[in-house]
Amino acid sequence: MFADLTLFGHCGHRIAASAEGPDGGMPVLLAHGGGQTRWSWKSIANLLAEHGFRVIALDLRGHGDSAWATDGAYAMADFAGDLAAIASAMDRKPALVGASLGGLAGILAEGEHGPNLFASLTLVDVTPQLDAGGVARVIGFMAAHAGEGFASPDEAARVISEYIPNRPSRRASPGLARYLRQKADGRYYWHWDPAFVTGVMRQDEDQSEDRGYGKVELSEAARRLTLPVHLVRGGSSDLVSPEAVAHFRELVPHAEYSNIADATHMVVGDQNDLFGETVVDFLIRTHARKGGE
């Protein structure tokens, strides 16, 4: 699928990435959601590359093959700093497509380290105003098996099916192996640092040590966005409500908005083809107008 790369985020933090598409194409950074890896974007990356974009999919810090933060630096400001460092080091200003965690980090990076750090910003089912119940459900799923892992990939697949009941149940696929690590005890563990989840839970409980994760800071960062912005919501999302969309469009009046029917917060997995068409259309229109940046 990709050519593997090593990039460097904030303070030289090692970030694993993979690239696809023509070297001279408009660069597009893909930043996944919490608990995922760069392989979440496989089909989308292929589609963008087919349309001439130079696609660079990232493993965010503590995820996939990227370095873990030994000091527990998993605040939103840390993820935003990585994106800012990577974008600033590129020869051409990249477009950013960020899902959930990746999108929030993109808002903060552009708002704090911009303007014009990115050529455009596509936010996948995420805004500064998120439903607390939906957030708790996501964090609960990630925390539930972080410590003890799974006896087999099939057990992990069953847990995923229970978490996403709208999709057909299936046994472990070869692709699931990219999200799991088998340790010396023979059990399988998610391919990310458990300290990421405990850090998120701690920040959620204690905002006194706020490093750019709180709603106010993200809203302020969103209000500063002047670059082209595209918000893509899952029509059945339990994290981004219609009210949250209205709030975001007040903060960023020039933003485009797409609602993907029959998709949950996991928009890319639920409606991959429709999501891909929507994103490609926005990127082609936006960057053709701007001369490709």
Rank of each mutant, 00 (worst) to 15 (best):
M1P: 15
M1Y: 14
F2M: 11
H10A: 02
G12N: 09
G12L: 01
I15G: 07
S18K: 11
E20D: 03
E20R: 02
G24F: 02
G25R: 07
G25K: 06
G25M: 04
V28P: 00
V28F: 03
V28L: 08
L29S: 10
G35A: 05
G35H: 08
W39I: 06
W39C: 06
S40C: 08
K42M: 05
A45G: 12
N46V: 07
A49I: 00
A49F: 03
E50D: 04
E50S: 02
G52L: 12
R54A: 07
D59C: 03
L60I: 00
R61K: 05
G64Y: 12
D65W: 02
S66R: 12
W68M: 06
Y74G: 13
M76H: 07
A77L: 08
A77G: 12
A77C: 08
D78N: 07
D82F: 00
D82C: 00
L83N: 13
A85P: 02
I86N: 02
A87K: 14
D91V: 08
L96T: 10
G102Q: 06
L108K: 10
E110N: 13
G111Q: 14
A119H: 15
S120D: 15
V124A: 12
V124R: 15
V124K: 15
V126S: 10
T127L: 00
T127E: 01
P128E: 15
D131G: 00
D131E: 03
G133R: 13
R137T: 01
G140L: 00
G140Y: 01
M142N: 09
E148G: 01
E148P: 03
S152W: 12
S152G: 10
P153D: 13
A156T: 05
I160P: 00
S161N: 14
E162C: 05
P165K: 03
R170D: 07
R171E: 11
R171L: 06
R171S: 06
A172I: 09
P174A: 07
G175I: 11
Y179F: 05
R181A: 03
Y189T: 03
Y189C: 04
V197C: 04
V197Y: 00
T198A: 10
G199I: 05
G199S: 11
V200C: 13
V200R: 14
R202D: 12
Q203Y: 02
G212R: 06
G212N: 08
Y213N: 05
K215C: 12
V216M: 08
V216H: 12
S219D: 13
S219N: 14
A221V: 08
R224D: 01
T226S: 10
G234D: 04
G234N: 04
S236F: 10
D238L: 04
A244P: 14
A246G: 01
H247P: 09
H247F: 03
H254V: 05
H254W: 04
A255G: 10
E256P: 06
I260M: 07
I260T: 01
A261C: 10
D262W: 12
T264K: 07
V267D: 10
N272A: 15
D273G: 15
L274W: 13
T278Y: 00
V279I: 11
V279F: 08
V280Q: 00
D281T: 10
I284C: 11
A288S: 15
K290M: 01
